[in-house]
């Protein structure tokens, strides 16, 4: 029991258990079609969440990821759409728009990072403000209308491209966190920013970089979400923030900084996606879905914190 509880892969084990319980009860759950659905559903969420985890590890929080997703979605669509886009009809429209979206995302993240480090205000307040600002800007740019008629080359990213992007992002993030100096600095900054500063860690630069990564990955997720809806939307992703945070926390990332891994995050995202998928396939009444989801997330978080207590029990 203790071994299982303190396992670093507790969440993965929970997800597997959840699947094992649900599969026989729900027709269609264990089919290959549904499994591919499940993986497919979790990929863009995994990309945003990994970005958020970078910020969480550094001891911050980025509330503006969903607004960045929306703003990137509409700016990309404004560039490439077939009716009014600046590059309408140009064969390079899709790749240019994708690069542009990534650039916008990284830039917005960079702004977040600068604001957090320069204004010396809590990240929560700063990114809450930028969330409203970015979100409002996206709505203003489009007058709250959706933009369709995106190039087929772009919409095509929704298939195989999604898998490629997610795998590349996960591997790169894993290597960065585990094996790079930047990764060590991220954890150090999150565990104790003052000690890190005294020890010569460039705390400000590390923080700005973490927010930039978060912005960049939010933009990457925006590409995937936009492509699969074939629409640039100013409210894209508005409701996924709680899923992002839930997946990160269930995956073992600490909201107090200094803790979190890519593997854990993927397990957390899988868990959230599995939860959505099974509640959906069960045909649970609308009114119960949110309650059920809340309960399950709470239980997972409780288990995780219990595991941390067992691990962290003081020797003296």
């Amino acid at each position: 029991m203790r071994g299982l509880l303190t396992s670093r892969y507790l969440v993965a084990v929970l997800a597997a258990a959840c699947f094992a319980v649900c599969a026989p009860l729900i027709p269609g759950m264990a089919t290959s079609g549904n499994l591919s659905n499940l993986v497919w559903n979790m990929l863009p969420l995994a990309v945003v969440t990994i970005g958020e985890v970078f910020v969480l590890i550094a001891g911050g929080i980025d509330l503006s990821v969903t607004a960045i997703i929306a703003l990137c979605s509409v700016t990309g669509a404004l560039v490439m759409n077939g009716r009014t886009g600046y590059l309408a009809g140009n064969p390079a429209a899709a790749p240019v728009a994708v690069l542009f979206m990534l650039l916008v995302g990284a830039l917005l993240g960079f702004l977040n990072g600068c604001a957090v480090t320069r204004l010396r205000m809590p990240a929560f307040i700063v990114t809450l403000t930028t969330m409203m600002f970015f979100g409002g800007f996206a709505v203003w740019l489009t007058r709250s209308a959706n933009i369709d008629a995106l190039p087929p080359a772009f919409n095509g990213l929704a298939g195989f491209g999604t898998l490629t992007v997610a795998v590349v992002v996960a591997l790169a993030a894993h290597r960065t966190l585990r094996h790079s100096i930047f990764g060590r600095w991220l954890y150090a900054t999150g565990m104790n920013a003052r000690a890190s500063l005294v020890s010569g860690v460039p705390v400000h630069a590390v923080t700005i970089a973490a927010y930039s990564v978060s912005g960049l990955l939010a933009a990457a997720a925006s590409v995937l979400y936009t492509a699969r809806l074939e629409t640039g939307s100013p409210v894209l992703g508005q409701r996924i923030f709680l899923d992002v945070i839930a997946a990160a926390v269930i995956g073992g990332t600490s909201l107090f900084g200094g803790r979190g891994t890519v593997a854990g995050t993927l397990a957390g995202v899988l868990f959230v996606a599995l939860l959505d998928n099974s509640l959906n396939l069960l045909g649970v009444s609308f009114f119960l879905v949110f309650t059920a989801k809340g309960v399950v997330i709470l239980v997972a978080a409780l288990l995780d914190s219990a595991a941390q207590r067992v691990l962290g029990e003081a020797v003296e």
Partner: peptide, 23 residues
């Protein structure tokens, strides 16, 4: 009847419709 609610999120609705199709 198999129900799903997207809570105002187009992406979630997309995933839910895909789940219906899979089912």
């Amino acid at each position: 009847m198999l129900e799903a609610i997207a809570d105002g999120d187009a992406n979630r609705q997309f995933e839910q419709v895909r789940n219906f199709i899979t089912r």
